[in-house]
């Protein structure tokens, strides 16, 4: 049962941040633009030099090679870049991935990356991350640029993933309504400090209103 723990994490004026996210839990993270939410996720993914420690199941990131740590704590940037010509080439480590779960055609693998819309890129980037099976998720605005239906699909799919894997999730969003739907606890990052914004929300909110 993976538990993601941040111990006195500091990065460029943010922190020290202490946070524990239990198995299958979603910690919603909001805050004004420029507060350092993305920076905090990048620090957890060990992509920037930082103080303090991030641990998964009590094992610190520094106890393993950085690439192994990052494979476990899957970071989804707000805008995911693409580097091969076709979508399918990005999914080489996960053959047989089902694109339809996020409302994309089954043949999306043959698509040219240059022709993808912002929303398609967003959903495909999430699939690209999830198909590698990370034990925890760091999601940075995973539904920005998506319409309401696609947003609910993504929320539902992430919820299914964490239910199956018991993955702890840090979900960054400006949309507090969304965080109220998906998060167990909402935190606000402001002035470099992390504070809980709400009490753990009511369990019924987890079910949401969307049905696939």
């Amino acid at each position: 049962m993976p538990i993601l723990t941040l111990q006195a994490l500091t990065v460029h004026g943010v922190g020290p941040v202490d946070l524990t996210v239990g198995p299958g839990e979603v910690a919603g993270l909001t805050g004004p633009s420029g507060a350092g939410k993305t920076l905090l996720l990048r620090a957890v993914a060990d992509l920037v030099p930082h103080g303090g420690e991030a641990l998964l199941d009590g094992v610190p990131a520094t106890a393993m090679p950085a690439h192994r740590w990052r494979a476990q704590v899957g970071w989804l940037p707000a805008e995911s870049p693409w580097w091969h010509d076709t979508v399918g080439e990005h999914f080489t480590p996960c053959p047989g991935v089902d694109f339809t779960v996020l409302g994309l055609p089954a043949a999306a693998g043959a698509w040219q990356v240059s022709r993808l819309s912002t929303g398609e890129k967003q959903r495909l980037a999430l699939l690209r991350l999830l198909c590698r099976g990370p034990a925890a998720l760091l999601l940075d605005e995973p539904t920005s640029g998506l319409d309401a239906t696609a947003t609910r699909r993504v929320e539902h799919h992430v919820r299914e993933y964490l239910a199956a894997r018991q993955a702890p999730v840090i979900w960054v969003s400006h949309d507090q309504e969304q965080l109220a739907r998906v998060a167990d606890t909402i935190y606000i990052l402001e002035g470099g400090a992390l504070a809980p914004l709400s009490r753990p929300r009511h369990e019924s909110a987890r079910e949401g209103t969307w049905r696939p």
């Binding site: 690439h67 990052r70 476990q72």
Partner: peptide, 21 residues
């Protein structure tokens, strides 16, 4: 192409893999 390199690192690739091209 720093965004590409970091996205590939974030998927668990090593620096050698992330900069292969």
């Amino acid at each position: 192409r720093r965004d590409v390199i970091e996205a590939r690192l974030a998927l668990g690739e090593t620096p050698v893999q992330a900069t292969a091209g």
